[in-house]
Design a protein around this nucleic acid. Sequence first.
DNA 1: CCACTTGTTAATTCACGAGTATACATGTAA
DNA 2: TTACATGTATACTCGTGAATTAACAAGTGG
Lengths: 202, 202
Amino acid sequence: MDATEQAEGRAARGTAGQARRMPRAERRAQILDAATRAFARGGFAATGLDDVAAEAAISRVILYRHFASKSELYREVLDRARTHLIEQVGADNFTEYSIPAFVKAAAADPAGFRLLFRHAVREPEFRDLTDSLAAYSTEVAHRHLTALIPDEDWAQWAARLVPTVAIEAVIAWLDAGRPEPDRAAERIADAVHGVIDAAQPR
Amino acid sequence: MDATEQAEGRAARGTAGQARRMPRAERRAQILDAATRAFARGGFAATGLDDVAAEAAISRVILYRHFASKSELYREVLDRARTHLIEQVGADNFTEYSIPAFVKAAAADPAGFRLLFRHAVREPEFRDLTDSLAAYSTEVAHRHLTALIPDEDWAQWAARLVPTVAIEAVIAWLDAGRPEPDRAAERIADAVHGVIDAAQPR
DNA sequence: CCACTTGTTAATTCACGAGTATACATGTAA
DNA sequence: TTACATGTATACTCGTGAATTAACAAGTGG
């Protein structure tokens, strides 16, 4: 998705099957990128270290010179994706810039985005990393909605649904080929407002 | 969730650790119910046959007298959930009764519902069972939306998002404690319409 | 040139869960 | 009461994938 992996593919190997030599820090970062893509396909359990190694175009043993275990690697991948996302969306409040920033972040790192929200959220052993995100976004939404929705049950319903719909709307947008990248956030925000309206008293 | 398992728990065992004797067909159905609940917690890979056996309050070996393998059991569980859902929602077209029927079906079998849409959809080996559902609902939505949304990209976006939002709205409703069961479908339908509006040209 | 790091391949250990086999206990029906 | 189906418990086999080790190759920097 950016500048680190365009050199990987086949070009990473010489004729003798030797991978390109790389300084430690760079290799580490490149493994994290590759692991993000590999894990994004099937999540933790379904993705073997061989898959990760293949994606990074190195041998499996090398992984252990950079990460103590599969779990640790995965945790670091998730943590990085989460951190990047928070950095780009930031804000403790739900503002008109939240959704555009969210869309932009997803477009910048779709693998990380999918990994976080399609897989990691369903993996109990790593919930601690995604629960903060989920709980936090729900809480922000709830704080924002509590003024708009008098019924507490439906306010909770909307508070849980708003982040989910934002996520799913973004993924659907990615899947649809990212039409109108600069208007997408607008559409997605509208879909979110549809949920809020649905929770209004009638 | 219905009439088959209220007798299970501890009451199923006598003092000697012997499970209640049950005719073959009944036991089979009870295992399927229990397996639905067990698998609904973590999906196929994360759920061991021990978990299933424990949930059914029988020993693990018995499972093999009813099902040839874990995969076969899982397939049957999924197929049953899918069939029940289709029976209750039915309709080849999206009508005003579709969403109420959908909500009702989810309320009747929440474990099967979650299993299908939270787990099975992300399990490549069992995609054949859920793809029909997903592809079909997307196609129905697309057919319904193509008249309303001129831009094909956004029509596709909405067609994918509509079933997803319906599903997520139902799950959020279940999680929120099922408030106002008879008005829920109305709210959920509103949320869905919010998505459709968001895809309109502006 | 020498030491060190970054790589490779191959073989091995280990844990875990699916699947199988065996021996035994107990309701139920002919 | 005899035959059979339904149940238990235990102990295995077997495959897979994580984790480790060892021997070797090749850039790089002092």
